[in-house]
């Protein structure tokens, strides 16, 4: 059995004739957490969403080589069909959810507003065709009273609870990889810590996680690999030690972070 893997060899995203992302790629293996760090507007989200084939309206993936290796060694190359967008879209439908899951920043906005949490988790379970119960998924994502949560509507959840519900849905869906787009932004530190430990549990269970963030402080907590995105270009750092960052934008970001935190070393 070979390890499943996502390999983005290169990627070019344009919008209205302007190139937003033009970079060599990144790899994400099962059971590892790859942090993608960069300032706002550097193209992190575009890169992450191109792995799912869902770039925002107006942006286009004009050139890309993405190889998704499944557990049985089978390879899927969704962007091979470019420039035929419909064919690319078809290629991605087999990957979304089953292989690659998505955990967005706006967790509450990502839930069907008029469906109870339990029903939404159940819908994911039925897509995955497993016998696991809704309650057990909710419990595995860190809820202490899953029965109560299952009965709530999204507007009744706090940001952190909504994020956990999102994780429960990914667990229910059984995605092999998770792309988490700033999942801790806007949450208070305790909740952030909770979400990070759920993600690290997810990683330890063999799921590959690509975590997009602008917060370098979570690097020591979670990162197996670290890539920096700067003005549409990705650079993978040789080390995940914050004192040994080998790219200039990464060092700039880290010194700014450290200055805000008040412990410039």
């Amino acid at each position: 059995m070979s390890m499943s893997k996502i390999e983005l060899r290169h990627l070019k995203v344009t919008a209205g004739g302007k190139t937003l992302v033009d970079t060599t790629g990144l790899t994400l293996e099962a059971g590892e957490a790859h942090l993608l760090v960069g300032a706002s507007g550097s193209g992190k989200t575009l890169t992450a969403r191109s792995l799912l084939g869902i770039v925002p309206a107006g942006a286009n993936v004009t050139d890309a080589e993405l190889i998704v290796t499944l557990e049985d060694g089978h390879e899927v190359k969704p962007y091979q069909a470019l420039p035929r967008r419909r064919a690319v879209e078809r290629n991605f439908t087999s990957l979304r959810g089953d292989v690659i899951g998505y955990l967005p920043q706006d967790a509450r906005g990502s839930l069907d507003p008029l469906m109870r949490i339990g029903a939404q988790v159940k819908a994911c379970l039925s897509l995955n065709q497993t016998d696991e119960s809704v309650e057990s998924c909710l419990a595995r994502s860190g809820f202490e009273s899953p029965e109560r949560i299952a009965n709530l509507y999204p507007h009744e959840l706090s940001g952190g609870m909504a994020q956990r519900a999102g994780i429960a849905m990914l667990l229910a869906r059984g995605s092999r990889f998770v792309i988490a787009d700033e999942p801790t932004t806007g949450l208070d530190p305790t909740v952030q810590e909770g979400i990070l430990s759920e993600l690290s549990r997810l990683r330890d269970s063999g799921v590959g996680i690509l975590l997009i963030t602008h917060d370098l402080r979570i690097v020591p907590r979670l990162a197996d690999k670290l890539s920096i995105m700067h003005e549409g270009t990705l650079t993978e750092c040789s080390s995940v030690k914050l004192d040994e960052l080998d790219s200039a934008p990464a060092r700039a970001l880290w010194s700014a972070t450290a200055r805000i935190s008040g412990d410039l070393r």
Binding site: L95, G97, L127
Partner: peptide, 22 residues
């Protein structure tokens, strides 16, 4: 263009199902 349609897509649901059901 809401987050929940994006999330539903990312869960592998077809456009038709998202539109008609959700």
């Amino acid at each position: 263009d809401s987050g929940f349609v994006l999330a539903a897509k990312a869960h592998g649901l077809s456009s038709l199902r998202i539109l008609t059901y959700h």
